[in-house]
Amino acid sequence: MMAYMNPGPHYSVNALALSGPSVDLMHQAVPYPSAPRKQRRERTTFTRSQLEELEALFAKTQYPDVYAREEVALKINLPESRVQVWFKNRRAKCRQQRQQQKQQQQPPGGQAKARPAKRKAGTSPRPSTDVCPDPLGISDSYSPPLPGPSGSPTTAVATVSIWSPASESPLPEAQRAGLVASGPSLTSAPYAMTYAPASAFCSSPSAYGSPSSYFSGLDPYLSPMVPQLGGPALSPLSGPSVGPSLAQSPTSLSGQSYGAYSPVDSLEFKDPTGTWKFTYNPMDPLDYKDQSAWKFQIL
């Protein structure tokens, strides 16, 4: 009977010793046993002879290597770790002494450095960015050149030099007046198309007034536009458009034309069986010896 009264063996659950049927240790109110408190290391007290050895090595170098620390530790009968900690504390003490010396050398008012006064946003004049500046400075420094007289040679050079070769001289006033084509001369031969040399188009003023001019072949195509416009036809070669000034309004060009419109200028042929003959000019830059190549039959 006494065997049943004795408590059973101890069981360990999660490293906790349980005594038989008792489960009081598993209750929430019972805390787990805490780790033992780490003991504080005792402070090391250095003797005068030990301090002399350490100070002598510190005077040589503030960062001794492990071999120098072990050698000193053997002399003063201390572990190497204590020597390492002593050098660490000695360097910190040396830095603190240097900072105190710097503070003593500075004057009393030198510690508080005078800061520059901050400028207020409204006091300083700042350039306004509302208006974009002129990058080319046209509004201040540029002045347009004065327009020359209508009959000045410089204007003629600016007008005619675009179309004339570089080897030719500017046309005088008398020749510029001949550039304007007359109405009857352009409409006299509506079906004849003559190819003149390129030099005649640039230099010869008579080429624009003769039936064999460069633009005589364009007349049949330009004249039928007159009834559609409801007024006189516009002429690209009329009046002052080739003269001194090219800047004319469309209203000033509306009254200039080749001449009176005639039914002869239409595109319809009077004789459907007729042929169109292209007159060959020996001055043509295209060297075609066979003139029969310039004739064709309209079917």
Rank of each mutant, 00 (worst) to 15 (best):
A3Y: 14
N6C: 14
V13H: 02
N14P: 09
A15E: 00
A15V: 13
S22P: 09
M26P: 05
Q28H: 13
Q28R: 13
V30Q: 02
Y32D: 03
S34Y: 10
K38G: 11
R40H: 10
E42Q: 04
T44E: 13
F46G: 15
S49D: 08
E52Q: 05
E53K: 12
E53N: 06
L57I: 09
F58P: 14
F58N: 14
Q62R: 06
P64R: 14
Y67F: 05
A73S: 10
A73Y: 15
K75M: 07
I76M: 10
L78A: 11
E80R: 07
S81E: 03
R82Y: 15
V83I: 06
V85M: 15
V85P: 15
F87K: 12
K88L: 15
N89K: 14
A92S: 11
R98F: 01
Q100I: 08
Q100E: 09
Q101G: 09
K102N: 03
Q104C: 08
P107H: 05
P108C: 08
R119M: 04
K120C: 00
G122F: 07
G122L: 08
P125H: 09
S128L: 08
V131G: 07
V131D: 06
C132N: 08
D134H: 11
L136V: 11
D140R: 08
Y142I: 11
P149R: 09
S150F: 11
G151R: 09
P153H: 07
T155E: 01
A156V: 13
V157I: 11
T159W: 15
T159E: 02
I162A: 00
E168T: 06
S169T: 03
P170M: 08
P172S: 05
L179I: 08
V180Q: 05
V180I: 10
P184Y: 10
L186M: 01
T194W: 12
A196L: 11
P197K: 04
A198F: 14
A198V: 10
S199P: 05
A200R: 06
F201H: 02
F201R: 01
C202T: 01
C202L: 12
C202G: 06
F215V: 03
F215Y: 02
S216Y: 15
G217R: 13
L222T: 00
S223A: 06
P224T: 11
P224S: 13
L229W: 10
G230D: 03
P232E: 01
S235G: 07
S238R: 08
P240N: 08
P240L: 12
V242K: 09
S245T: 11
Q248D: 06
P250S: 08
S252H: 06
S252P: 07
L253K: 10
L253T: 03
G259V: 15
G259D: 04
Y261L: 06
S262Q: 09
S262N: 02
V264W: 13
L267K: 05
E268G: 09
E268K: 10
E268M: 12
F269E: 00
D271I: 13
T273Q: 02
T275W: 13
T275A: 03
W276H: 00
W276R: 00
T279V: 07
Y280T: 00
Y280H: 00
D284K: 13
P285I: 12
D287H: 12
Y288T: 05
Y288H: 02
W294I: 01
F296N: 00
I298C: 00
